[in-house]
Design a protein around this nucleic acid. Structure first.
Length: 161
DNA sequence: GCCAACGTTGGC
DNA sequence: GCCAACGTTGGC
């Protein structure tokens, strides 16, 4: 079970858009490091922190879950798409996406300033100076700390008897 | 709007 | 393979 953080500018695609759509293909990622995570590492069932960037305040605004692991990003093949890449061919795709669904909103959002106050998150990629990766791994400890900050109770362990 | 940080491109 | 130039990201 992996954990990830996906960045999106809310003017482009917000958590509310994901709730409206039900599921979405996380397309348009055009960075090789992020592509490698999408293609090779992210699995169905993994947890996703949905982060709004380039907005005031930048914040984790929701929790999502991966419903389909990496598969070719169709926007790369579409000449009308902003994300069209003529070098990516269906039989040898360059770019990949995963499909996600919303789990719950984080309300109030966990702002960047708030996250920076939390010692357990000191090593988080998101908080690193100059960090620009739009798809980035999150450690289990970071994930749990953020669930707690968001007021989300850990799932009850099943108990027999 | 500014600008630091970063990834990519392309000349050599 | 180096690295300068360039374009982009993203917080402030």
């Amino acid at each position: 079970m992996g954990y990830w953080l996906f960045k999106s500018e809310p003017d482009s695609y917000s958590f509310a858009d994901l709730v409206r759509d039900g599921t979405t293909g996380w397309n348009g990622v055009r960075n090789f490091q992020a592509r490698n995570f999408l293609r090779d590492a992210i699995r169905a069932g993994d947890g996703v922190l949905f982060y709004h960037s380039s907005t005031d305040p930048a914040a984790v605004v929701g929790i999502a879950e991966v419903v389909e692991a990496g598969h070719p990003d169709p926007s790369a093949f579409d000449p009308k798409s902003d994300y069209h890449d003529p070098k990516s061919k269906p039989d040898a795709p360059t770019w990949f996406q995963v499909t996600i669904k919303p789990v719950r909103a984080v309300d109030p959002p966990l702002t960047l300033a708030r996250l920076r106050e939390v010692p357990a998150l000191a090593g988080m990629e998101l908080l690193r100076k100059g960090s620009r990766l739009s798809v980035q791994p999150v450690s289990e400890g970071e994930w749990k700390a953020i669930q707690e900050l968001a007021g989300i109770k850990p799932a009850k362990k099943s108990r027999k008897g």
